[in-house]
Amino acid sequence: MANGILVFIEHVDGKINKASYEAVRAAQLIGAQIGQEASAVILGQGIGDAAAEIAAKKLKTVYTVENEWLKSYTADGYTQAFKQIIEQVQPALVLFCHTYEVRDFAPKLAASLKRILLGDNIGYKIEDGQPVFTRQVFQGKLAADVVPVGDTPHLVSFQIGSFRGDECEAGQAAAQALSVNLDADVVRQQPEERFKEAKAAVDLTQAPLIVSVGRGIKEQKNIEIVKKLAESLGAEIAASRPICDNEWLPMDRQVGSSGQTVAPKMYLAVGISGAIQHIVGMKGARTIVAINKDKEAPIFEIADYGIVGDLFEIVPALTAEAEKLK
């Protein structure tokens, strides 16, 4: 491998997505082990401050690509611009953090180079001098080690939270502006303003105790038994996404990557499998308890206390026990 590692820096209106620092950190670590220098690239318009911020990390070069067609993110614009950058810089490895934006364009970018994105990895190891990437399959029930096949550049993304962005080594990167050709024929998507739906009525982020319910509850009417448990513990009730999608509990009770991120003293997960999109929203809890009938459920990987069994038997027993605390 010859031309270093190139890290994609994501931003909205010049404000860098913190997840990008995780990708920088990954590049620093992998680069040190395989003898490749890491550089970064940022695309947009009016991105000077963001580029300067990134240049304070230990990187060889920070490439900036200013173009009016990159003012707002579009899959077409980013793919076409990034492709031209890869042709100019010729990196051996391109690293991304696996954000929604990266999910949207990186597979297209890879395909345009006749490559595949090795997506959503949670770590790596070095075997025979080459990085091997680890990703989850079956929604976290199993892990797989994967390698790219074929010529460089190889494109790889890491799941959010796989690296510590705050552990990036500081440094002073060189700045280099690159230019790309884009026009209306290339950029077919027309994005409107980003917006939020009605503000959440419940703020779960401040709750000291949370009892959270997942699809193991089977039916809407069964939610009652979990509500009773929450009440007897003096806890807020929360849920996994499918429960809120079904409107069994309101949207603002959802925990996870597309819901709230919580860090209570205790998080009790009832009938929740522990998909990564849920875990990112609650893994900061001080004590995690899981009740699940499947002892292989991924939620047990992060649980302090586990009860393997039928929630319909355990939850009422737990409610009765909690009542005694009062």
Binding site: K141, A143, A144, P148, V149
Partner: peptide, 10 residues
């Protein structure tokens, strides 16, 4: 364009 080396319990 990619290959699985191994699959295992996490």
């Amino acid at each position: 364009k990619m290959q699985f080396r191994r699959v295992y319990v996490p």
